[in-house]
């Protein structure tokens, strides 16, 4: 399945992030189903890593929980495989580079593809060092989503987009992942700067946690929003069924906010 499914017919996509294996594999599976039932158009599954330098406290804590539960990279891919058997949304895997390197780039790409994963996002893999990965990913028809930040120059945006497939991941702020109450003023200029230069969809992430921020982002003209920490913390802060209900209804609110345009 390609990204186009999430962004089809000018639909604004809600991409829900969950940490794979958090708080344990079976509850994570149910949580993923809940956000999809709530209206998520795509799912991003994190592979837990011991040293997540681009993540704030919420995702760090989720990594710790998932690793404590014994989650391995292959378990997250297995989770993706189970999900793709039962749901019809694209699934992306977000992982730091080292777990991929340890498995071997071609082996990881093959395993991800076999699991039905649509694309891979690697926050510490810059385009300059991505050729070997891209060869492995393309051989398995995997998309590779690169990140662009407000600090990225326009000429560099062009070079990143050239290597990017599926969508471009816009980092909304100077900062790490985590819930924020609103988007800073510079995000608007940043989004239009990127929009002017690309033809594939762009999705805005980092700090988008409330329906109001989702609306704000959609008004800036992005094709999708990525919500992570807000969902991860809801899963962490309640138990069992009520956590799943909470996730489902909160995702519904977020999805409704994407429909304003």
């Amino acid at each position: 399945m390609t990204s186009s499914r999430a962004f089809s017919d000018g639909k604004r996509a809600l991409i829900a992030y969950l940490m794979g294996g958090d708080p344990n594999p079976s509850l994570c599976y149910d949580a993923a189903l809940s956000v999809i039932e709530g209206g998520a158009d795509a799912l991003e599954l994190g592979i837990p890593f011991s040293d997540p330098i681009a993540d704030g406290p919420t995702i760090q804590a989720a990594s710790v929980r998932a690793l404590s539960a014994g989650t391995k990279p292959a378990d997250v891919l297995e989770l993706a495989r189970e999900l793709t058997k039962n749901v019809r949304v694209p699934i992306y895997v977000m992982t730091y580079l080292n777990p991929i390197l340890r498995m071997g780039l071609p082996a990881f790409a093959r395993a991800a593809s076999t699991s039905g994963v649509t694309g891979v996002i690697v926050p510490d893999l810059p385009i300059e060092l991505s050729d070997e990965w891209l060869v492995a990913a393309r051989a398995q028809s995997l998309e590779t989503v690169f990140l662009v930040s407000p600090a990225t120059t326009s000429s560099r945006i062009d070079r990143i987009v050239e290597k990017c497939s599926g969508f471009v991941y816009l980092v909304s702020v100077y900062g790490v992942t985590g819930e924020r109450s609103s988007l800073p003023d510079y995000t608007q200029e940043f989004v239009s700067r990127v929009k002017n230069r690309v033809t594939i969809p762009v999705a805005l992430g980092f700090g988008i946690s409330r329906p109001e921020t989702v609306k704000q982002a959609i008004k800036l003209g992005v094709d999708g929003v990525i919500v992570g920490s807000a969902l991860v913390s809801r899963l962490a802060n309640s138990e069992g069924e009520s956590a799943l209900d909470e996730l489902r209804s909160y995702t519904r609110e977020l999805k409704a906010a994407t429909l304003i345009a």
Binding site: I53, A54, L97, L101, L105, P123, D124, L125, P126, E128, L129, S130, D131, E132, W133, F146, L147, V148, S149, P150, A151, T152, I160, V171, Y174, G175
Partner: peptide, 22 residues
Amino acid sequence: MTEPEHKAGWFGEFGGQYAPET
């Protein structure tokens, strides 16, 4: 891993700049 584009910052196959985009 990948053949580096520039030699600065590389010590054989070690070094490089595996940094977040920001």
